[in-house]
């Protein structure tokens, strides 16, 4: 367990020192969201109706941009070799790095979403459910994203391929995240139904994704 926390702490520290991590993702999030009223026009009712879906889609895009930092630097500077040779299973190492990505990117994005909601005339009573669903759904984004990041490790400029590989896997998260917010605002489905499925998606990806990511890492090194 000490290996796990050593790796987690190092990744958190690196993310804080090198900058451009969460800040860049939030900046991108803000820009995508603020493009929408400019393009669609100031129809407040329309904006309020599409706000939850747009915020979720923009969050996915912003998170996608940061996926390459999960493994890329460690692969390039040789750290990954030594990480593989540690006594901790590579699956746990992949989990530690995914967790660090969630803490440094997923959580800040989820917490900044209500602020972005103002731009889209998000209904006040949707703010709580939106932040909650995003906090619960973002682990799935980081952990599933780690699979894509590991698969495209050996390709230089693999960012676009990561998006193509990973985006389809985000569809369930998007659907249940948005429907939970909508259920909380307008019903008729109770909030819990889609919300619990979203939580289940997150938990399943936390358990299963590191297995796939570790297999992809081994393939990349061999």
């Amino acid at each position: 367990m000490s290996s796990f926390s050593a790796l987690l702490k190092r990744d958190l520290r690196l993310a804080m020192r090198q900058g451009g991590g969460a800040g860049m993702a939030i900046g991108f999030f803000l820009i995508v969201v603020s493009m929408v009223p400019l393009g669609v026009g100031p129809d407040l009712n329309l904006l309020a109706r599409v706000a939850p879906g747009l915020l979720w889609a923009a969050l996915l895009l912003a998170a996608l941009l940061t996926l390459d930092r999960i493994f890329q630097a460690d692969y390039e500077d040789g750290s990954l070799d030594a990480i593989v040779m540690g006594s901790m299973p590579l699956e746990l190492a992949a989990a530690a790095k995914s967790l660090a990505h969630w803490i440094t990117t997923g959580v800040p994005l989820a917490l900044s979403a209500p602020l972005m909601g103002i731009i889209l005339n998000l209904e006040p009573r949707a703010i709580g459910p939106l932040a909650l669903t995003m906090l619960v759904g973002t682990p799935a984004i980081s952990f599933i994203g780690a699979i894509g990041a590991a698969l495209t490790l050996v390709l230089r400029r693999g960012g676009l391929l990561t998006a193509v590989l990973v985006m389809p896997l985000y569809v369930p998260v998007l659907i249940f995240g948005v429907s939970a917010v909508k259920a909380a605002v307008s019903g008729p489905v109770p909030f819990e139904a889609p919300f619990l499925i979203l939580a289940a998606l997150s938990l399943a990806s936390v358990v299963l994704s590191p297995l796939a990511a570790a297999a992809a890492l081994r393939a990349a090194l061999h």
């Binding site: 790796l7 190092r10 520290r13 690196l14 040789g78 070799d81 030594a82 006594s87």
Partner: peptide
């Protein structure tokens, strides 16, 4: 120890070693 140094530029020398000490047990 191969061609790549496995050194993190953002960490100090001691922090680099402390990480490997913690990670490798």
């Amino acid at each position: 120890v191969g061609h790549a140094d496995a050194v993190k530029p953002q960490l100090s020398v001691t922090e680099n070693l402390a990480f490997w000490a913690g990670y490798l047990g």
